[in-house]
Structure formats: structure tokens, C-alpha cells
Simulated scan of single mutants.
Amino acid sequence: MRIAFLGNGLTGYLAAQYRELARLGHELLVVQPGSPEVAVGAMRDTAFDELGVASFAELLEWTSEPSAADLVDRVRRFDPDAVVMSSWNFADSYRAVMKSLPPGVVRVLVMDNLWRAAPRQWLGRATSRWYVHSVADVAMVPSERSETYARMLGFGPADVIRGSLSADLSLFGGGDERSGDELAARRSFLFVGRLVDHKGADVLAAAYRRYRELVDDPWTLEVVGLGPLDHLLRDQPGVTMHGFVQPAGVAELMRTVSCSVVPSHVEPYGVVVHEATASGLPVLCTDFAGVAAGLVQDHANGWVVPAGHVEEWAAAMARVSGCSPETLADMSRVSRALSTRLSPQIWARNVAEQIARRRGA
């Protein structure tokens, strides 16, 4: 099949997913902004190295948004069997493509938003017949929480493709089994994410400061990421700032720490949790993460912690650093087991089967 992807920026895990789809023999067109400066949201604070997508797909990277007419023409020449739109942020050109597709081309909207009953979401629900269903036949979601939102927008149970995001398990899933003694000896937490409000950088800074007051011999905190709230963590005792780190470097860091922390106020999904579990780490994860239900079980491989509650986060960090080596080893094994429920290979086979089935219908 021939599948076009309209996105808002490439990441290591997206490249891994696309690569597996190409290995199945499918031809891909990937349309993306070509630099962080023209990307949106999370992509603005990233600068990924060359991800090799052009070696297995037709890659259209732009530095200014292509005109609707130009992009429609480019996708038409590709002659796709399906088009997958993973961003609303370039509405004019991307929506024009989706509306121009002839009958028989499967139109997929990737959405990771969580239903929060916000006024804008109620408006979207009220106008979904015209704004959403005019450009998409199917919604593809990463979690049950996103599926709830898709259903609120009018997508039926047969109109949802599940499992839209996966960590690159070839990168994060390798290495030997983590022993409890090794994890206990590392004595460090790891945060990977943008240093912005919705990622909970403020909660992380305050909770880690409070955690150090609660325990006699605190673990250190490794911080990977960039953003305007950098100053809340920089120069804080026990904190090491790494800036932006490429995926391979993050994978290496995850093998040198004891626990991953994801304290976001709002986390539509959270691929970093999948990366951490694949690396055999216990995880402290915000309850506002779509990934939490599938990959974090209280006491089995970490804890789900209420978003925004500094004292709860400090207590959870103390709870983890007080675990015995035997408990940490058990948590590591559960994390590894849970992480295998999804992979780029599973994602690629699922996408191909879902599109083929819908084309046949």
C-alpha cells in the first residue's frame, strides 16, 4: 500500500514506527516541518539528529507551510491508499489535502488529546460533524482516554484504531536485566521532557526540594530537556542538568538511573513512560497521563501520583528511594513485561491491517 503521513515534526520513536511500516513493503510519503523553528508545540524545544527517514520513505520537509494547492498536488501525485494526519496545527494545507482525497482513500486522524470538558472541546464536539468528519473517516488514538474524546467527537467503536504511539524498543528495550542491587546503587531519578508548565517542571522542582527534606540520604535528580522553566531546577542541590539529549543518549541515561519521574500537569500520552519501562525502570507517573493505565501499576512497577500535588510527589519519591533492592528488582521485571504490549513492529502491522480492512470495506 501507499500511505502518506502529514505531521508536525519527527521524533526518534515516530521514525522507528515508519521504518517498520516500510519494512513490511509499504511505500510512504512523510510530510513534516524541516526544523524546530517552524514546528509547533513540543517540537520547538527539540533538535533531533538526522533520523534516516529519507532512506526508506519519500520525505517532504518544509521551512514554511506549503500552500494548500501545492500540497494537494504533491499528495495526489503520490496516489495514496491512505492519508494519516497527525496534526491540526497546519489546518489550511493539511485539511485541504484530506478534503481533496477521492473515495476509497482511507483518511485517518491521529489524536492524543484527553477529554477535559474544556469549553473549546465542547465547541469541537458541537461542530465535529463539519470540522472533524469532513476530513477524517477514522481516529487513531494511543490510549483509552484519547478514545473517550474520539467517541465524544462522534467516532463509533468501529471507527477507532488503537495503539498510535510506541517507544523504539530496539533502542530502549535492549540491555541486560536490571538487578535490584544495581538499581539501588544508582541512587538517582530521571526526568526527560520539556521544561514547561504543562510538563510539571514546577512540581518537579518543588517536590524534589521537599523530598530532600524528608529523607536523610536523598537520591540525585538527572534532568533532560530544555525550556523556559529551566531556572527552577538549575543550581538546585542534587540536580544535574543535561539539556536536550538525542534518543540514544536518553537510552544510555536510563540505564544509569534508578527511577523515571513524569510529573506533568497535562500529558496526553507519554511515550517517555514506555521508554522507561522498556529500560527496566520503576516509574512515578502523573495520573493525567494517557499511558498510565496501560504501563504503570501501583506498587507493581511504581506509582501513579496526583498531578500538581507537591507533597504527594515528594512522598512518592521517598517511597521509591526507600524500596529494598528486592522490590526494585521486582518493579524492573514488571516494567519490562508491561512494555512489550506495544512496539514499532506491532504498530506497523496494526496500521497496515486496519487500513487494508477499511479499504476493502
Rank of each mutant, 00 (worst) to 15 (best):
G249M: 11
G243P: 07
V250H: 03
D216T: 12
R234V: 12
R234P: 00
H231F: 14
V245T: 09
L233Y: 04
E252I: 05
G249P: 03
V224N: 06
V224W: 05
L253A: 12
M241S: 09
M254W: 05
G225V: 01
V245N: 01
F244T: 10
L232W: 00
E222T: 04
E252K: 13
L233M: 08
H231N: 07
V250K: 03
A248T: 13
D230Y: 13
P237E: 11
P228R: 15
T220Q: 12
Q246P: 10
D230S: 08
G227C: 04
F244M: 12
G227D: 01
V239E: 07
H231G: 08
V239A: 11
V223K: 06
F244L: 11
M254Q: 15
G238I: 09
E222M: 03
W219F: 11
L232H: 02
V215T: 07
V239S: 09
G227M: 01
L229N: 06
G227H: 01
E252V: 13
P218I: 06
G227V: 01
D230G: 00
L214F: 03
F244W: 15
P237Q: 09
R234D: 11
E252P: 00
L253T: 05
G225M: 01
A251G: 08
G243R: 12
G243Y: 11
R234H: 10
P218H: 05
V245L: 05
R234G: 06
A248G: 06
Q246S: 14
V250E: 02
V245K: 02
H231M: 06
V223F: 08
H231K: 12
V250S: 03
L233K: 08
V250N: 03
A251N: 05
F244G: 07
T240I: 14
E252L: 12
G243F: 13
M241Y: 05
V215P: 00
V250R: 03
L214T: 09
V223C: 03
G249R: 11
P228D: 14
D216N: 07
H231W: 14
H242Y: 14
L226K: 15
W219D: 01
D217H: 15
L229S: 05
F244R: 10
L226N: 14
G238N: 10
D216M: 06
P237V: 07
V223H: 02
G249S: 09
L232D: 03
L226T: 14
H242M: 12
G225A: 00
T220K: 13
L253V: 05
D217K: 11
L233W: 06
V250I: 14
G238R: 13
W219T: 01
P218C: 06
T240C: 13
P237D: 13
G243A: 13
P247M: 09
L221Q: 02
Q236I: 08
T220W: 00
G227L: 05
L233A: 09
L229E: 10
V245E: 03
A251L: 08
P228A: 13
V245F: 03
G227P: 02
G225D: 01
L253D: 02
T240D: 12
Q246D: 15
L214E: 10
M241L: 15
M241F: 08
V245Y: 02
G225N: 02
G243V: 12
H231R: 14
M241T: 08
V224K: 04
F244E: 08
R234K: 13
R234F: 02
F244V: 10
A251E: 03
P228H: 12
L221M: 07
D217E: 15
